[in-house]
């Protein structure tokens, strides 16, 4: 494999104006990373460490959490920040390894499509979730569904 290194005097195009998206992506990875440390370790602590940990997870547990606006906002931030951070990282990796232009475009298109679909789906789940669906056995639901 040969690599040509351009002469330092070769003419180059200098960017003028416009948004430097690559720079904002770089900043986003760092800002979202710091916030995600809190969001993810909080999520893991509540779901895996408190009480019986993973054994306590079921529909009623999620019903209890997602009927609380605090956890709705927590999960929304977690969803958006983590998924966009991960997708942007996957884009960087694709740029590094996909030397064929078409392959790169297809892979990045797939990453973008999956991200958009899951952001919409996940957000809808958080805000349209019904913790007490009619007709479901009461023992599968949170206790507040039957109280009163």
């Amino acid at each position: 494999m040969t690599t040509t290194i351009e002469s330092p005097r070769a003419p180059r195009t200098v960017r003028r104006g416009g948004v430097n998206w690559e720079k904002w992506g770089w900043i986003y990875m760092r800002v979202s990373g710091v916030v995600l440390v809190v969001l993810i370790f909080g999520h893991l602590f509540v779901n895996l460490m408190l009480g019986d940990g993973v054994k306590a997870l079921d529909f009623a547990f999620v019903g209890g959490k997602l009927s609380n606006p605090f956890w709705q906002i927590w999960d929304t931030l977690l969803l958006w920040l983590a998924l966009i951070h991960g997708a942007n990282g996957m884009r960087t990796i694709t740029n590094d390894y996909a030397h064929n232009r078409l392959v790169g475009v297809v892979l990045k298109g797939a990453i973008l499509a999956a991200t958009v679909v899951l952001l919409i789906l996940g957000t809808l789940v958080i805000y349209t979730f019904d913790p007490c669906p009619a007709g479901s056995p009461a023992d599968l639901l949170a206790s507040f569904c039957t109280a009163g």
Binding site: L79, L118, L121, G122, L124, F129, L140
Partner: peptide
């Protein structure tokens, strides 16, 4: 995200 979305299907 897909497995959590099952809360919208049924308990």
């Amino acid at each position: 995200i897909l497995d959590t979305a099952l809360v919208r299907v049924s308990p």
